[in-house]
């Protein structure tokens, strides 16, 4: 029994890991296609039909390139940097509930690796750990541009973590739990007690703050100042080549996948969708939850597309504008949101 449980979790972890890698791989392809669409170009179309083998070709290229470690760099930390970046990107998926409990034969499979009762805080911890990969890599390169990129990454992440934490607090005041499974179950279906059950409709401002902070934490445009090529050559990864550079770029796409999953789970009902009870009744306990998983992935893909949409639409912030936005606009708004949430939940119930 115990061994079966461990085996089940092991398989689940393997599948989730594989899916995050595949999604990240095809995000690079999607990014180029989306960019091409926005700029009225064709995009990659040489490798395979519609260029769908392009990520494989890119990966092979990354592995084949010469690996360079600068002479004055710290060789150990130079390797630790990208490894940490990809590690912290991958561990966030552990607490996300991917679907309802599923019955295969006689066993009930929980489509969540672990339901710790501090799930939201765990995600927050992983996010705050994410900056180390960039900082350590940037410092170990022993290059001024890399160091500036690393310092920018650190200050940006710390500033936006505050606003992100405050926006989550308002959400937690409504849910009353830190477990992601319970938060998702509270958003069951779409309509409950005369109001929308998804948290987005209860916390619109909180969601807006959260998504802005998610952009900043994943270093995506308009907040990609740590790798601002017009000012810093390549930012923190200036000195990197071959697959170590690949890891940094790849970590960004995995982060995008994880933060999209978190946004769908916290604010957009996760695997819940309108009329899910009816579908579950029709399809039974094996295929019904899988529809929920497909719905969750639909939401995730929409958010990944949104990340790309913003990247190819909005120009980059200037550094002082970035700090002003974080400290003078987002944090006061987040605090106001907490006060408002407190007042509403006290006087309306």
């Amino acid at each position: 029994m115990e061994l079966a449980f461990v085996g089940q979790k092991f398989i689940l972890v393997g599948i989730i890991f594989l899916i995050s890698l595949v999604v990240a791989m095809y995000s690079t392809y999607a990014e180029r296609k989306v960019a091409a669409f926005f700029q009225d170009r064709v995009g990659p179309n040489r490798a395979g039909p519609f260029g769908i083998l392009q990520p494989l070709a890119d990966g092979a290229k990354m592995f084949m390139k010469e690996e360079i470690i600068p002479t004055r760099a710290n060789p150990f930390l130079f390797i630790v940097g990208p490894s940490l970046a990809i590690l912290t990107a991958c561990i966030g998926t552990a607490v996300i509930p991917w679907g309802q409990k599923m019955t295969i034969g006689s066993t009930v499979v929980d489509l969540q690796v672990t339901d710790i009762n501090v799930g939201v805080l765990y995600l927050f911890g992983v996010v705050s750990l994410g900056v180390y990969g960039v900082m350590i890599g940037g410092w170990a390169s022993n290059n001024k541009y890399s160091l500036l990129g690393a310092i920018r990454a650190a200050s940006q992440n710390i500033s936006y973590e505050v606003a992100m934490g405050l926006s989550i607090i308002a959400l937690l005041m409504i849910t009353g739990t830190l477990s992601l499974r319970e938060i998702t179950e509270q958003q069951h279906g779409f309509w409950k007690d005369g109001y929308f059950s998804w948290n987005f409709f209860k916390q619109p401002l909180g969601f807006l703050l959260f998504i802005v902070c998610a952009f900043a934490e994943t270093n995506r445009t308009p907040f990609d100042l740590p790798e601002c090529e017009t000012e810093l050559v390549g930012g923190y990864h200036t000195e990197y080549s071959s697959m170590k550079l690949g890891f940094y770029l790849f970590a960004e796409y995995i982060n995008m996948f994880v933060s999209s999953a978190v946004m769908s789970t916290l604010y957009f009902g996760g695997y819940n969708y309108p009329g899910m009870d009816y579908v579950n009744e029709q399809l039974g306990n094996t295929w019904g939850p899988l529809v929920g998983v497909a719905v969750l992935f639909g939401k995730i893909i929409f958010f990944i597309f949104f990340f790309m949409w913003v990247r190819w639409t909005i120009p980059r912030f200037r550094y002082d504008q970035l700090m002003d936005l974080g400290w003078k606009i987002l944090i006061p708004l987040a605090i106001a949101n907490i006060v408002l949430t407190g007042l509403v939940s006290t006087f309306l119930r």
């Binding site: 911890g125 705050s128 750990l129 180390y132 900082m135 310092i151 650190a154 973590e161």
Partner: peptide
Amino acid sequence: MGAIMVLFLF
């Protein structure tokens, strides 16, 4: 680990 040490390192 996530906040104070990042500031130290910074």
